[in-house]
Design a binder for these strands. Structure first.
Lengths: 199, 199
DNA sequence: TTGAATACAGAACGATTGTTCGGTATCAAG
DNA sequence: CTTGATACCGAACAATCGTTCTGTATTCAA
């Protein structure tokens, strides 16, 4: 009871409504719009709530003193265990962590880019047509890495392997041939992750 | 000379500066900030430029008459082809420049959570051990959807199917059995995407 | 060389912004 | 039964917003 209630509580429902609004419009609304969004009628109270979000780093300000999403605004719940509806919580944790997908997938923003996968040549590595590969750009790689290489002026995603003295690109699909680029090849980068949208 | 010059020209440099500002702050600035950003000193001229962007659908308005990114705001040239030489352009893949991966993967923040995949039961659907499933929480789903269900107080990712009158959960891996939950099951949500980190 | 666009600047103005401050209702602790 | 938080409402206000209108410099075709 001593230290716990230092910071005022933030209402997750308010945050969720704002996140949904932002997801739809890609903009943080004004205080009066926030008021209706949150079901209030006083801008002064909105101001108070915003200050709490600001302190919790869900919101932030531009150098021009405009409200903008803060560092934690895009955090998502990572649910470990299903929270049973009926059962009382067995006194443990909340059952989830918070992670930001961008931070999770991109660790070196300046060297990272995305490449869309075409075809099924890497199916056995769990890489499907249309997937987005997160690539860390670098001119060399290790045997066994999944690399994005430039062959015939096109991107190719393949395993990097060596045959005798030459590097080759191996698909993860028996129906596809090994690529033996004549006269060297260029490595664009190494796969660091994958993003897929279904639905 | 007749029909061609109906629409006034839009200056790509202005758009790029605004896109850069947005990428940094995740917000569209006010007209006076835009003026300095664009090197002008008259808001009236900003207003004119904005109207052109609006007509070209690079900008749009919220129902609350606030300026927001338009449908084409995140659009860039269609670069499937690798750009040779000094890697001029990171961060892109296809026609759309993703502002964030989070935005790409999450469409309804308040109903979205992440679940970590355990095991290889969905390998043939390109879902591997350790992957993060983006789940849109909802109590029901359609046959054929990949769902996250709660069985024995644990999350399971499977195809939803029906046998006669009962719902069953089908793995995407012949080595695993079909799950026929006795006495009904609870659906946590439907898979909407996937995030994987390698390396 | 004239005229009509185009690309700005600048002032004026009502509307809207976010802040501040004073007030009220609820509720749990002492 | 007080007291002090907490959760709001409502009014007032200066600052800033975006619009509108008038004016000017440049360009370029006729």
């Amino acid at each position: 009871m001593a230290l716990s209630t230092l910071k005022p509580a933030i209402d997750p429902a308010f945050l969720e409504k704002l996140q949904d609004y932002y997801a739809e419009h890609k903009v943080i609304p004004s205080y009066s719009v926030l008021a209706t969004l949150w079901g209030m009628s006083a801008k002064s109270w909105v101001s108070e709530i915003v200050k709490r979000f600001e302190e919790a780093r869900y919101l932030d300000w531009t150098p021009d003193k405009q409200l903008k999403p803060g560092p934690r605004f895009f955090e998502r719940r990572l649910t470990d265990q299903p929270v049973q509806a009926g059962l009382p919580n067995p006194a443990i944790s909340d059952g989830y962590d918070l992670i930001t997908l961008d931070d999770y997938l991109v660790r070196l923003p300046s060297r990272t880019s995305l490449v869309r996968v075409k075809g099924d040549s890497m199916i056995d590595a769990g890489i499907r047509d249309g997937d987005l590969i997160i690539v860390e750009q670098q001119p060399n790689a290790n045997i066994g890495d999944i690399v994005v290489a430039i062959v015939d002026n096109e991107f190719t995603v393949k395993y990097l392997d060596r045959e005798k003295t030459e590097f080759v690109l191996k698909p993860a699909n028996k129906a596809f041939p090994v690529i033996r680029p004549r006269g060297g090849m260029e490595i664009f980068g190494v796969m660091a992750g994958l993003a897929r949208r279904t639905r």
